[in-house]
Nucleic acid binder design. Structure first.
Length: 340
DNA sequence: GAGTCGTGGCA
DNA sequence: TTGCCAAGACT
């Protein structure tokens, strides 16, 4: 969970996850669907699949591997995670190199090169090994990561309070210039139509196939690109089968996925199953309770919240209108109206 | 080696 | 509003 994700974000997911899957056996025995649903909203869903696969592998081999080399053979466990687990759980003297330590060491060595390059990486690992406490490698690794996160932070590093400022070459030259800024990628912008089809309090969802690159295996609201020659109804039928009609209600929701910036136009719509529906992706009608146990992305959850808010506002307006009408009808016939 | 994958916080 | 980035791994 902590891979590329901040601790603060992870904590609530971690606690709920551990309650649902208290040990490796329960995780291995659980359907992937359940694992994904507990991962909903955390992102990088491949991690959930790999964690599940790793649990299966651990149970099959009869226990956890205890060396960093063996750990790294498990799905989803790379150099960082293998070193972190091996050092913290099993006391192996291997250094971790996460984003924080990487930055700290680049500054310490005043390396003005891209730390992702393998040659630079080797140099950083060598330095990390030098600094590692062989008596307490787990604590030592955690201390380095904390130091990077809290003291040798990306902007405005607190060099004055740094316990490693002694041998730091970057401090003299201006720590902030190391490592060099990454090449930035251009953001791809797009507009999508998202359709909420309601039926007796349930919403129509489709399952993304497991080999999709993006959010594989998660449930999605029917979604189509905007600005096509086809009408929305045609696009929806082609993608999801059935027959569609689109209502007037629409809400705009913004969402960003790594290098993409999405404008989601959430529509209300209706869906009628036709002969072609069997050819579309797996579908389900899910009410609010059912949705709790489905794997939804944050993008879908956000769209649904926006839709529900809009519907509540519309209902409130309708209620006010109804009261006005009632009031008029209750007034004595032929009585003068306001302002006349 | 470079591209990709989600999301939320923050400046 | 926009861009950057985080306890990375995999293709």
């Amino acid at each position: 969970m902590l891979q590329q994700t901040q601790v603060k974000t992870v904590v609530p997911y971690y606690e709920a996850f551990m309650e649902r899957f208290p040990d490796v056996e329960s995780l291995a025995a659980a359907p992937l669907e359940d694992v994904l649903s507990r991962w909903s909203g955390l992102g990088y869903y491949r991690r959930a699949r790999q964690l599940h696969a790793a649990a299966v592998a651990v149970v099959e081999r009869g226990g956890f591997p205890t060396s960093s080399a063996e750990l790294e053979s498990l799905p989803g466990i790379g150099p960082y995670t293998a070193a972190a687990v091996a050092s913290m759980a099993f006391g192996e003297a291997v250094p971790v190199l996460d984003g924080n330590v990487e930055r700290l060491l680049c500054r310490r060595l005043a390396l003005a090169e891209d730390p992702k390059r393998s040659a630079v990486r080797r140099r950083l690992l060598q330095e990390a090994a030098q600094l590692l406490s062989l008596q307490r490698p787990g604590d030592s690794n955690q201390a380095m990561m904390e130091l990077g996160a809290l003291v040798c932070r990306p902007q405005q590093p607190a060099c004055d309070t740094c316990p490693l400022s002694q041998g730091c070459r970057g401090r003299e030259l201006g720590a902030e210039q190391f490592p060099p800024p990454r090449k930035r990628r251009n953001v791809e912008r797009s507009r999508l139509a998202v359709v909420v089809a309601e039926r007796q309090g349930s919403v129509l969802l489709f399952k993304r196939s497991s080999n999709e690159a993006l959010m594989a295996g998660l449930w999605e609201l029917p979604t189509i690109p905007l600005h096509t020659k086809e009408t929305m109804e045609q696009s929806l039928a082609a993608t999801y089968g059935g027959a569609w009609s689109i209502g007037s209600l629409e809400q705009v929701v913004r969402h960003s996925i790594t290098h993409r910036s999405l404008q989601l136009v959430v529509h209300r719509g209706t869906f009628t199953a036709g002969d072609s529906v069997a050819e579309g992706p797996e579908a389900t009608w899910a009410d609010a309770r059912a949705r709790e146990n489905l794997a939804l992305s944050s993008m879908v959850a956000k769209s649904l919240r926006s839709y529900e808010r809009a519907m509540q506002e519309r209902a409130a307006e309708a209620d006010v209108g109804l009261r006005r009408v009632k009031k008029l009808m209750e007034a004595p016939a032929g009585s003068p109206r306001n302002g006349r």
